[in-house]
Amino acid sequence: MNVSAVMMRIIRQFVRDKRSLALLIMAPVLVLTLIWLVLDGNEYHPTIAVESIPAPLEDRLHDEFNKEILTKTEAEAKEMFEQGKLDAYVSIKDNNPFILLEGSDPTANGAVMQHIQSAFQVTQSNSTDRNLTVEYFYGSENINLFDQVGSVLIGFFVFFFVFILGGISFLRERTQGTLEKLLSTPIKRWQLVTGYIFGFGIFTIIQSLIIVFYSVYVLDIWMAGSVWELLIVTVLLALTALTLAILLSAFAKNEFQIMQFIPLVIIPQVFFSGIFNLDTLAEWIQALSKIMPLTYGAEAMQEIMIKGKGILEIWDNLVVLCMFAFVFFVLNLLALKKHRRL
């Protein structure tokens, strides 16, 4: 009897909470769609450049890559690597084929090597034994999927936990009545939000320190850049997550509804933030990634960790993060206006 009474009560509650019900059904659909979109992308066609290689080999590469092959000098190729416009450079050095891979994206590396090896297998059969030399512009052959994905995951975890904790604690402020009490005092709205940012700021710095140092020194993740510069990125990312969380907490009635934002706000960002190669996807999906803060954070992290770039080379990503945080901050002030005009 008790069991069925409890069961009926839960069913009733759930039916009244239309949003949670919608989440139960729509969220898995959404997430599955995202995975499908990402993993069902077309095969990646790398862009390669060659220099002074035998005509038959060039023809063979052309057939294999099914794409126009550029002719560049090594210096020009390196410049294109910097701009992210080229995946590999093929040439002959000391009578042996020499391949220089861009190196930062295992997917692209794999695609290049697969095509090149099959191209060489055909040509090898009617020529002397060749020694393939492979070098990496960024990283090395030791760079693995974790190194690539890990840099994004660090950003993701910082974002995720700050979002959840910040959202719930501001929600509590609303539900336990302290927000109202606070607004009956001469505190200004911006002071309240800023106080939250600084209060959480301390914890996010500690959190970032631990995650970054653990990844770099314990998990031995590929780290070409400066740890301190990486911390600046994670703190900015946390700031964006916190301001977004406070904003969204205005649309949640309880902790459970905060959790509902995870599949709607957090998970989509993971798919579009660089764990998966987006180059093969439709343009509208790529455009979608442009409105997600994690995209910029993750890109900045990858540039520092894998490519060893400095903070000055990735300032544009940081500016975008700051802009996100600023916009969310202003929206928070407007959302609080609902309670008090001043």
Binding site: Q176, G177, T178, E180, S184, P186, K188, R340, L342
Partner: peptide, 21 residues
């Protein structure tokens, strides 16, 4: 109302205990 000036001299106790537990 509302005015910051007033908030300094008005005390308000809400129906729920607005306390940090």
């Amino acid at each position: 109302v509302p005015s910051f000036n007033l908030m300094k001299s008005v005390g308000y106790m809400a129906q729920s205990d607005a306390l940090y537990q």
